[in-house]
Amino acid sequence: MKLTKEEIQFIDTYLKNSDIMFTDVRTEMVDHVATAVLEKMEEENHTFYDAFKAYMVVHKKDLLKYNKQFKKTTDKIVLKSLFKKFTAPLNICIMVASSFLLIQFFPLGDKKFLKFVLFGFLIIAILVYFFIGLKQRGQRLSGIERTGLILTLSFQLYNAFQNPFFNEKSVIINDYYFTLVFVLLLGLSTAFIAVILDLHKKYTNHYTIV
């Protein structure tokens, strides 16, 4: 005995309507619910809808708890990966080398055009995020989406406190301060891009059916 495509779709739609929006979470939940419902149908001779209703009455709260817990776990995993990528030896080398190059070749006062570069780093990371999002063809994958959220928050924080277009004095006026912001944004953006690409690779591997 197995569930029909329509019955599987029914479970998926029900979970989607219960605010379980990430495809990776829902895929696992659909299988969990479908297996439990099928077992109930076989053991207790229930119809699909009766078995589904009986299962949901008891377990819906747990499924929603899992969904909530999953977001927290994903956030922790993403933040940990970002820290790991930010402090990776190669990233540190890039940051140190770029700070030396910046101080060496762009003396104080010549940097006004570079204020665009500061934005550029974060914008490149955001573009990579959107490009990967397009490749997912509408599927919402938890890790990538939560990384996108943290990236957007970082961009907004930068806008609020360090945007050189609104707050020119703070970033441009001091050579070392500018270098520090430049290097941190460069390091952060490369860390974001590396995490997004890693997650994309992970999801592609996971959902390659064996």
Binding site: D31, Q69, I209
Partner: peptide, 25 residues
């Protein structure tokens, strides 16, 4: 169960494989 599985996966202790079984993954 699932948060524990995902945590173990993130720690590199578990690997994941997806298979198609009876109309679902």
């Amino acid at each position: 169960l699932y948060p524990a599985l995902h945590k173990l996966e993130a720690e590199g202790l578990l690997d994941v494989e997806v298979a198609k079984v009876d109309n679902r993954l």
